[in-house]
Structures are given as structure tokens and as C-alpha cells.
Amino acid sequence: MSGEPAAPSGQAAALLRRAERWQLWEIALWIIAVAMIFVMPSHMLILTEIAILALLAVSLDLILGYAGIVSLGHAAFFGLGAYSAGLFAKFAITEPVTGLLFAGAVSGVFGLATSFLVLRGSDLTRLMTTFGVAMLLAEVVNQTGWLTGGADGLSGVTVTPILGLFEFDLWGRTGYIYSLIVLMAVVFISRRIVNSPYGLSLKAIKRNPTRAAMLGISPNRRIVVIYTIAAVFAGMAGALLTQTTSFVSPDALAFHRSADVLLVLVIGGAGYLYGGILGAVIFTILRDWLSVITPQYWMFWIGLILIVIVMVGRERVTRWQALLPGSAANREAKARAAALAAARDAA
């Protein structure tokens, strides 16, 4: 009997460690991403685009996949970061990393200020407020043409070498490496966040806010924090876009960007961080391929894909992530499928 009580605690520790372990496919993914620098040197620009979109999607995943907040205006933070970085480079410091941090900070402050809007009400009011905030920002940019260049965009953004050492080259190699490092850093930080007790509380709030409150969790504070963090990351994604293209257009705040990033997350699957990355890869390749076939009308196909995904069922579309061996998504997908089946039986 005396040896027995230790067994469950050892089992618990093993289970907890297993959930946090770096999976083989995670490591493989990053190796591939790095290898791309050498394998596809002529595709650096599109790879950069993917990395930036992935970063934006990861930030959305934190609030949608983990905290369960539906946002129709995530582009607000992206655009704000893009313009902040642009204006910062134009009027203050041209060094990119400083600009990146500045943009993240601005966006984060804005995220903190607007996070209180998503606390109250239903999905619908959240949709409306996030959408409204994004539209509001777009309108501000539009009306302050003297500062932002209005509809023509902000041009003349000069970026000096990163940390004064690495100059942006014509082929976008530096840009890709820079974006990839930021993406890796953000995913690493996010990974720590979601695997911490705090991350666990987010998952709990999303799944059952009533019970979460009955465990002494104040859902509002937790949501404010993650919303702010997501805003910081989204702002950084925007800054990367500005710095790698030396240009900001109002397109950074456009509605379709909020919709695109939702689609990215839907393709890749929400709630396990890597959905944003995989989704960004698929989405960008798909869009490029479609726009080659039908240059102007790829929007049609994107729309069709959205509808098909929803009609087939998001769960089913993203089931492939469960194939990733030993992944948390694997286990969660199994549980989710069982939960769905149980719910269907009950209904």
C-alpha cells in the first residue's frame, strides 16, 4: 500500500510533461522553414508573406482558439502595427527591431484599450465591436491623409539594416530570415503561455465560463491579458509587412484581411498554435495558384472554399491535423469527436 500513492503522482507528472514536449513534427516544421532559405532562394518574397500571415494567424489563434473570442476585426491590430512601424521609421528611428517593438507596443496598448469591448455581450456584439473598431481605424487612416498618405498609402519608409548589421537585400533573404525569427520567437512565447497554468485557465474559460468562474477564475481579466498579447503579436506582424516592403497601404486594415486570417485559421485548425502556420502556407499557395488561373477573381474561389469548409464541417476539414503523431491536437481531436458524437446522441 505504501508504494501505491506515489504511482498516480508519477503518472500525473509524466502526462503533464508529455503534453508539453516538443513534437517531432514541430521540430521538422521549423527545420523545413529554415531550410527554405537555401532550397528556394528565389521564393523569399512569398515565403516572407507566408511568415507574416502565419504570425497574424497565430496571434488570432490565441484569442479565437484559446480564449474563444470571435473577432471580425483582427486586421485593426495588424494595420495599426503596420502604420506605427511606418511612421516610426519615417519620423523617428529607422532601425527595424526598434520599430518592431514600438509597433507591438502601440498595438498592444490599443488592444488593451479595446479589450474591454469584447468582454460583454454575445458572439454577435463581439463581432460587431471588433469589426467596428477595424472600420474606425481604417477611417482614421483614410481621413488623416496628411500623416498616413490616405488612400495612396504611406510611402518613403526607409529601413536601415537590422540592428545596424543585416541589410535588407533585393531578393528578400534578410526579410525572410528576420520574419521567420520573429515568428519563431512568437510561437515559442505563445507555446509557453498556452502550456502554463494561465493557458490552462484560458482553455477552461473557452470551454465552460460558468464552471471556470466557480473555480475562482475571473474570466474578464484573463481575456483582457490574452487579447492584449494577441494585439502585440498582430502589431508585430504588421510591422514586419511594413519593414519588408517599405510601404504601408490602407489594405493593411481592410476587411478582407480580417476575413483572410480567419480563413487561414479555419484551414489550419484553431487551438493548437500551428494551425495558423500550416493554414498560412496552404492559403498563400492556394491564392497564388488561383490568381494565376483567374487573376481578378480569386476572391470567388476563396469564398467558395470558405463555404465548402463550413458546409463540410470545420471539424472534419481540420481532422488531418490529428494525423500528426502524438500531437495534443491528436488527442484533443479524438476527444472532440467523441464529445460531438455524445452531444448528437443526447440531442
Binding site: 507528472a13 503533464l16 503534453a19 508539453e20 502554463s196 497554468p197 490552462l200 475562482g216 477564475i217 498579447i229
Partner: peptide
Amino acid sequence: EREGHGRLGWRPLS
């Protein structure tokens, strides 16, 4: 949560 570990933190659950 009872122990107040649920605030934003760096330490993994394990």
C-alpha cells in the same frame, strides 16, 4: 487557481 498560479506566467504546468 486556488494557489494563485493562474495569472500570466512563464512556468509550464509540469
